[in-house]
Amino acid sequence: MKSILKNKQIVIGGVLILLIVLLVLLAPLITSGDYSSVDLPNKHLAPGPGHPFGTDYYGRDVWTRILYGGRISLSVAVCATLLAAVCGTLIGSVSAYFGGAVDFIIGRIMDVFMSFPMLLSSLIIGIILKASVRTMFLSIGIPCIPMFYRMTRSNTLSIRERGFTKAAVSMGSGPMRIVLRHILPNVLPHILVVFSSAMGGCILAESSLGFLGFGIPQPTPSWGLVVNEGKSFMFQCPWTAGFAGLFIALTVLGFNLLGDGIRDYLDPKIRNSYL
């Protein structure tokens, strides 16, 4: 446990994520809590007292909207990516380990998914299911599954052929045990890398969906939505899109650092260099 704190990437990434999560959770205490009421006389105010991040086109406080928007964006990012990672990893490892017809059928289904642009599959799922936050997770998470599937499958294929899986079979381990104990721990570092980059993609996907009208229903803000609204006034008042973009960037950076750090921590060969 002590050694985990010696990994700078984990510490910096973790602190960053923790700060953002705290800000988002404490939103009712540190903002006015009013993210939706229109105040036209005060539109496009520059950052200043009362409005630390300024106001947008409708005169709404950007600081409040960003903190409340984080609730949607963060939970969508975490839940959708987790959903994709868990499903993709399980399907990928099972597909690769058993091979044959199972692998072929799963592979073709994934090919179909991959042949659509991600946004299009998101829209299709969004249309089929009723609009809600849960639908949001599904419509962003499901199109990400092939990413994890492909990565897990190819790595499982190579690890399955390594001596220690054969040795484990010869010691009487069953297929489940081999996948869980011997293959997945060796694929995990690769999953973490994809995980942290998928996280950023999911936050942005949510904003694209919001832009197309398939996101979280108005007036609830999300980071993507705030960026999109601010985009039209990028030159008059850059703070709206700018601050929301900054939060997205910091979150993605935090998860990337955390992911890389954990990957190094889990690798026994690298971990020793921190001891």
Partner: peptide, 10 residues
């Protein structure tokens, strides 16, 4: 091959 027959992360 004793190198390849042991799980590197355990």
């Amino acid at each position: 091959e004793p190198m390849r027959c042991l799980n590197p992360v355990e």
